[in-house]
Amino acid sequence: MLGTLRALWEVLPLFTNTDWGQNANLAFLEKHMGASFEERPQPWVTNITVDDIHSGDFLVLSKIRGRWGAFETLEKWVTGAYAGHTAVCLRDSEGKLWVAESGHEDEQVASVMTVWTQLAPAYAGNMWNEALNKRLGTQNLSLSEIIVEVEKRGSSFGELLAIPEQDNWVYADGKSTSCVAFVFEMYKEAGLFGELASSIQVTEFTIKDAYSLKFFENNSSRLPKWCNDGDTVKLPFCQIRGKYRMELPGYNTMDPYPHMNERCPSLPPKYLRPSGC
């Protein structure tokens, strides 16, 4: 009981949109992930124009305050990612710049299963059961029927949950697209995975998996002149804004391989991954 109260005392402040809440998020990530928050020289906004942005540029964002900042903090802790949201820049046929992302259609419904179950139990149940039916190759089975079917097949519920999501699965409300799956599905269609595309399911990627891929510029001399302008530390990527210097451990270090990220554990604080998982 005492341990539960201590955990609540540590987590609840994360959701407050106050300086106290922001400091709580920073302290949580420092304690549980080993993150560091080094302050950048002012101004904390880079001198960048629309013309500096190219179609396909990958945006990684991190929020450390308010309700969604708290959800991002918990997501970072669970997945090992040092960012909480992603988007991609796209230009249309007339050259107009857009930022495309997969987000929350209804901000009253939080992206955590337990919260979904409380706020919208019918929707949560349907989503959960539909995903499990996809993995079984069945349709419209209830949770109890799914468990019976799993036992009939000599399997276990844990093994069912471990079956990788497939990019071509379509649910009642459309495809399953997290923010990072949305971006990397575009990259996949654009040919960035080459011949490996058919053996990679980007719906299994976390944000950490995404920014770890060797898809980005590896020659710092070729980065734009405005990139990290005025900062005393030259990052291997461009930080557009933010009080604290962005950390992306493992950035641009991993070559794609078949079935990548389908069997990887995620245990803090080191988030070690077996080779080829």
Rank of each mutant, 00 (worst) to 15 (best):
M1L: 13
G3Q: 12
G3W: 02
L5G: 00
L5R: 00
R6S: 13
P13H: 08
P13R: 10
L14E: 00
F15P: 04
T16G: 01
D19P: 02
W20I: 05
N23P: 00
N23E: 11
F28D: 01
M33N: 06
P41K: 14
T46N: 12
T46S: 15
I48A: 13
I48N: 07
I53N: 00
L59M: 15
L59V: 15
L61C: 09
I64R: 15
I64F: 11
I64G: 15
I64H: 11
R67E: 11
G69N: 07
F71N: 04
T79F: 08
A81R: 12
V88N: 02
C89H: 07
C89W: 08
D92R: 08
A100D: 09
E101T: 10
E101G: 06
E101I: 05
H104R: 15
H104N: 12
H104M: 11
E107T: 15
E107N: 10
V109D: 06
S111I: 05
S111K: 01
T114R: 13
V115N: 14
P121W: 05
A124P: 00
N126A: 13
N129H: 02
E130P: 03
E130W: 10
A131R: 14
A131H: 08
L132K: 04
K134F: 14
R135V: 11
L136V: 11
L136M: 14
G137W: 11
G137Q: 11
N140R: 14
L141Q: 10
L143Y: 14
L143Q: 09
S144D: 13
E145D: 10
E145I: 02
I147K: 15
V150T: 06
E151P: 02
E151Y: 12
R153I: 09
G154S: 05
G154I: 09
S155Y: 05
S156R: 01
S156T: 15
L160K: 04
L161C: 07
Y171G: 01
Y171C: 03
A172F: 12
D173R: 14
G174I: 04
K175T: 03
S176F: 12
S176D: 09
S178W: 02
S178M: 07
V180R: 00
A181G: 11
F182L: 02
M186C: 01
Y187T: 04
Y187H: 09
E189P: 00
E189W: 03
G191Q: 06
L192E: 05
L192F: 10
F193D: 06
I200L: 07
Q201V: 00
T206R: 12
I207N: 02
A210N: 03
A210S: 08
Y211H: 00
L213Q: 14
F215H: 08
F215L: 15
F216Q: 06
E217F: 09
N219Q: 13
R222K: 15
P224S: 10
P224H: 10
K225I: 12
W226T: 05
W226K: 08
D229S: 13
D229V: 00
D231H: 07
T232S: 10
V233Y: 13
P236I: 06
R241H: 05
G242M: 09
G242K: 03
E247W: 01
N252K: 09
D255V: 04
Y257C: 00
M260S: 04
M260I: 09
E262V: 01
E262C: 01
S266V: 04
S266H: 14
L267A: 08
P269G: 01
P269C: 03
K270D: 14
K270V: 13
L272E: 14
R273E: 13
G276K: 07
C277E: 04
